[in-house]
Nucleic acid binder design. Structure first.
Lengths: 334, 334
DNA sequence: CTGAAAGCGCTAACAA
DNA sequence: TTGTTAGCGCTTTCAG
């Protein structure tokens, strides 16, 4: 293994002290132009790459942010990775990923957070999920700056989200206005979007119309796997009908569509379906799924931006950023 | 910010030297049981978390592996992240991700690889893609241990793949046996699987039957985006018919299916369709897509395992691991 | 079995 | 504008 060239080598070759080399690689303005050029030339010539680890030790900063999420959330998360990747690259941060839910693993959350702490990441991005409370507990204990994507805003922690309550309220309210109150809400097993507040929105819409939303009859819990959800709906629709099936995630909406069709239910004539996240799934299924578009790329990008602001102690006007959503009408609604 | 507790604090509190503390946290067997217990207790009490950065500096090892891929490959990659995450957690490695293809960015590959080098990751996992050659060049230049997922095996670099040539050969050969030689191959814009060798397999199958595969007429290049591919096929099928459309990735297969149906082509009666990767897309579309299953989770897991073996200089029997694939017959084939 | 001390490669006062 | 020097927190000889 070729020995890595260090700042000492550069200093010696350029005939300056290491402090000077350090200054030029950190863009300090006090270095004389001529000296800088000589150092820069030497860096080029020796192909010197500053060791981030050493720098990290010296500065107690790793310029690394950790992102933590359960694998089963990955389908949602993937689109955010683009935003996270681009933005952290631009801001010169590295990103480390920590997945949490291996099958048959012991107490993964604690173990994983332990790793995050040891890694000394400067900050962490969390994704709303079933175990978010434990995660929050850990990062608060160790005072690690964090931002949460998808809600569950705690007092102290910044977050990026959409107004899930309003999304649900608006949609359900519209149907109730038309007198269609036989609505089912499908809760995906893992969800980035706060399904709790969606339910709040639904309940409120019902109250608004002097009706009540029956949690035991009108809420359907789906599986993580498409095929299982599909089978479940295949059974379900043998005995149940709805005016609208509203799903917290497109995948489950598609499962409902296919199962309904296979039970002879016509969509959208007999039953309408609305999904959430506006993924490729919505475009591919037939009839094409009406879905709520959520700006996932932006959520990732903003999360990084917000986190770095916190890390740099820039003053953060808003620690809760609510992004816009948009209903994309397609063929599963009238 | 609460000052982190260091190995010094533990040493002082436990009444031993830091060398001893270091020994117990590294599981050295030479420490007397009683001393070890005392140290362990102190570590517990002070809630000491060893600083990986400092350790990294001291050992010149970061226990971090970097994974590098273009965002547009993400749909493929995501399923591997599970395997990568689980395995690296079990082997006690961190994983950092580096995405490469921001829109409108300059020369991202070099920039990104530069970051990887600075980060001093112990090893890197690459995913086969358009720019893999540049990536390989960089890691060879800096002698970073690497494994490539999805092929493009170079002499020196380990890789995990499926036998894409055989996959293509077998499928096409079967149709040719039946006398159906009007076959189109759809190349996705970004692909993890070596489409080159798939084409080799197809060409060989044709030669096998004394026929020739016409690259200009029988190869279709698709877009990264589902909707664009769909539009493209909508046009395409106004004038073209095939016995079989074989796509290098499910997404494009689904685009073909939907576009064909919208052109009045019956599937599978008039035209059969086969996809690759066996994703959720294959299950969701109607008719359900026949697709080649590829063990993506395992590819990720094995990549990590192989890489760590290389890092530990265990002797690696096979630097090229070929995993099994399996055709999953569904409704788009007869 | 345990401790002292010399690094790992870099940054950041403090001097000059 | 540049150099000297003391860390950052840990590992690892080398003595004892």
């Amino acid at each position: 293994m070729k020995k890595n060239v260090t700042i000492y080598d550069v200093a010696r070759e350029a005939g300056v002290s290491l402090a000077t080399v350090s200054r030029v690689i950190n863009g300090s303005s006090v270095v004389k132009a001529k000296t800088r050029d000589r150092v820069l030339e030497t860096i080029q010539r020796l192909d010197f790459k500053p060791n981030q680890i050493a720098r990290g030790l010296a500065t107690s900063k790793t310029t690394t942010i950790a992102i933590v999420f359960p694998q089963s959330l990955f389908a949602h998360v993937k689109d955010m990775i683009g935003g996270i990747g681009d933005t952290s690259r631009r801001l010169d941060y590295n990103v480390s990923i920590y997945t949490t839910d291996e099958i048959g693993d012991g107490n993964p959350i604690e173990t994983v957070m332990e790793r995050v702490i040891k890694s000394r990441a400067d900050g962490v991005i969390l994704f709303n999920n079933d175990e978010i409370d434990k995660e929050i507990e850990m990062i608060e204990k160790y005072k690690i700056p964090a931002v949460i994507i998808g809600g569950k805003a705690s007092q102290h922690i910044a977050s990026i989200m959409v107004d899930s309550k309003a999304i649900a309220f608006d949609i359900v309210n519209k149907y109730l206005d038309r007198g269609q109150d036989n609505i089912a809400f499908v809760i995906p097993k893992q969800n980035l979007i706060e399904t709790d507040s969606m339910i709040e929105g639904i309940v409120e819409a019902y109250q608004n119309h002097g009706k009540t939303f029956d949690m035991t009859q009108q809420v359907i819990h789906a599986s993580t796997h498409y095929e299982k959800s599909y089978q479940q709906f295949l059974d379900y629709f043998k005995e149940h009908r709805h005016d609208l099936v509203f799903a917290g995630y497109d995948k489950e909406a598609v499962a409902a569509i296919n199962a309904a069709i296979d039970n002879g239910i016509r969509i959208p004539e007999d039953m309408e379906v609305i999904g959430m996240m506006d993924t490729n799934y919505a475009l591919m299924c037939r009839p094409a799924l009406t879905s709520v578009h959520v700006p996932v790329y932006d959520m990732g990008a903003l999360a990084v931006r917000l986190l770095t602001k916190i890390l740099n102690e820039e003053n953060v006007e808003e620690s809760k950023i609510v992004l816009h959503h948009l209903l994309m009408p397609r063929e599963t609604t009238l």
